[in-house]
């Protein structure tokens, strides 16, 4: 008698979890984006493409472009800081202490860390006090509520997400390869660009996605430290739900954001799952070689 295969049942909880908390909500949002908007929020039955048409609107497009720009700039800066940081952690003798210091901020609530920046940069904040004490400023300057501050705080928030995957790939990198490159005539910089970077590409892609995707959907940071002109897509969505009460529009913007980040995830899946090169049978190959070579006069 054949044994019954219970395999699929064992993985049922995962399927159930994903359906309940991922697939179903996503489906609801898709459906909402095609419905008519209710007068006081919510949706009313009836098919409508109004929310999707509204995506092409001028202000929305401007915010989308700004979101893309801010995300690209913040991600680039994050990676540029994370690369040398993770390299130095990977090569240091006290890796665990340094990694611990990277992770420590995670023990504090996200919002608390944003408020910490407000405490530093605010008009009564630490930076203003310090500058006035040094006599550089006479009246408090406004460091908050602009695009630059949003980028600064975003970089701060997502730096660990870039450092951790980069560290784990650089740690596996064989540093003898850099010595070999130097030995063969490469300068320090050439060795890093031509040997280190190509070999840690997987880590770089992961770090980019781990920072770009959450930054693209950022909500709290632009809301708290950015001004009105620093609004990002996340803020527009929240406004559509809580203030303007256009749920179908909120749904269609969400879908657009999901689509863009989804493309990013697909790129990741493609680049990280390239087929491995076939292995040869070492011993057999070398033996062939010896036999051939010994047959020669």
């Amino acid at each position: 008698m054949r044994q019954r295969n219970y395999g699929p049942w064992y993985s049922a909880p995962q399927g159930l979890w994903l359906t309940l908390f991922f697939a179903a909500p996503l489906f609801i949002i898709i459906v909402y984006s095609f419905l008519k908007k209710g007068l006081y929020g919510g949706v009313e039955p009836g098919f409508s493409l109004a929310a999707w048409h509204a995506l092409g609107g001028g202000t929305l497009l401007a915010v989308a472009l700004r979101t893309l720009l801010v995300s690209l700039v913040a991600t680039s800066i994050t990676i540029l800081i994370a690369l040398p940081a993770s390299y130095s952690i990977a090569r240091s003798s006290n890796q665990s202490l340094r990694l611990f210091l990277i992770i420590v901020p995670f023990w504090t609530n996200f919002l608390v860390r944003v408020y910490a920046w407000i405490a530093i940069l605010g008009s009564e904040g630490f930076l203003n006090d310090a500058l006035r004490w040094l006599g550089i400023l006479s009246t408090p300057a406004q460091f908050l509520y602009n695009q630059g501050t949003v980028v600064l705080v975003l970089v701060y928030m997502y730096l660990p997400y870039a450092i951790l995957p980069l560290f784990s790939t650089i740690e596996k990198f064989d540093f003898t390869l850099l010595e070999a490159a130097r030995d063969l005539g490469a300068s320090r910089l050439t060795a890093i660009v031509r040997i280190l970077l190509p070999n840690i590409r997987g880590g770089i892609v992961t770090a980019v996605l781990f920072t770009f995707i959450p930054i693209f959907g950022a909500y709290a940071v632009p809301l708290l430290v950015g001004g009105k002109d620093a609004y990002m897509l996340g803020n527009i969505i929240a406004d559509q739900v809580t203030k303007t009460r256009n749920w179908p529009l909120a749904a269609s913007i969400s879908m657009a954001v999901t689509l863009i980040t989804g493309i990013g995830a697909l790129v990741y899946a493609y680049t990280s799952s390239r087929p491995a090169a076939p292995q040869v049978d070492d011993a057999e190959d070398d033996l062939d070689y010896i036999i051939q070579a010994e047959a020669l006069p």
Partner: peptide
């Protein structure tokens, strides 16, 4: 030039 113990060939 050096021939390394681990060969140090560039894998990419």
């Amino acid at each position: 030039n050096t021939v390394f113990q681990s060969y140090a060939l560039f894998p990419h």
